[in-house]
Amino acid sequence: MSEEKREIAEGHTAEDLMASIRENIRACMQCGTCTGSCGSAFAMDLTPRQMWRMIQLGLVDEILASRTFSLCSSCYYCTLRCPRGLPLTETIHALKQLAVAKGLAEKKGARFYQTFLETVRRYGRVREMELMARYFLIMKSPVLPLRFTPLGMRLMMKGKVSPEMPKFFGSGKLDAIFRKVKELEARS
């Protein structure tokens, strides 16, 4: 895909995503049950309730600049308890997609998921040791691996992970499926 075409495709995706995000939240009545139910709310700069209001007001850039949506652990408490029955967790996933589509995704989380899907495309399944090795490589941080070294060593001693090195070339197990998904998404 040429640079220009890719920009158009991504522009579409971002617009579609934003439209569905606003539609999801249209009926929010600002009761705050979501915030009261959120285990990560203590660490957020915007509360979930505030974020929904900002979506209604179209303040997307402000939301994407906040850390709120990236702190969701998908526990589904807010979705379960929302008195309006709104798909709140799903909407947060859409915000995460939007951040990626706009190239604004916070580095660590987005890169971890990107690395994760790359190993799935290649092998069909996740090989945990390879996932972490690739994640460290892409993050280019000399200290990040150290935070996980003690656990990695213990897992290796238990024989739960093997120190496999990543393969960087060759075709992947799920190439066709990943390619087709991209094609369909560009079409819509």
Binding site: H93, K96, Q114, F116, L117, V120, F178, V181
Partner: peptide
Amino acid sequence: WTCCGASAAETTSDLLSVVL
């Protein structure tokens, strides 16, 4: 069998998160 997409696919592509 192959990976279900875990929590990675849904943050990247909605379609991929159901296809996997």
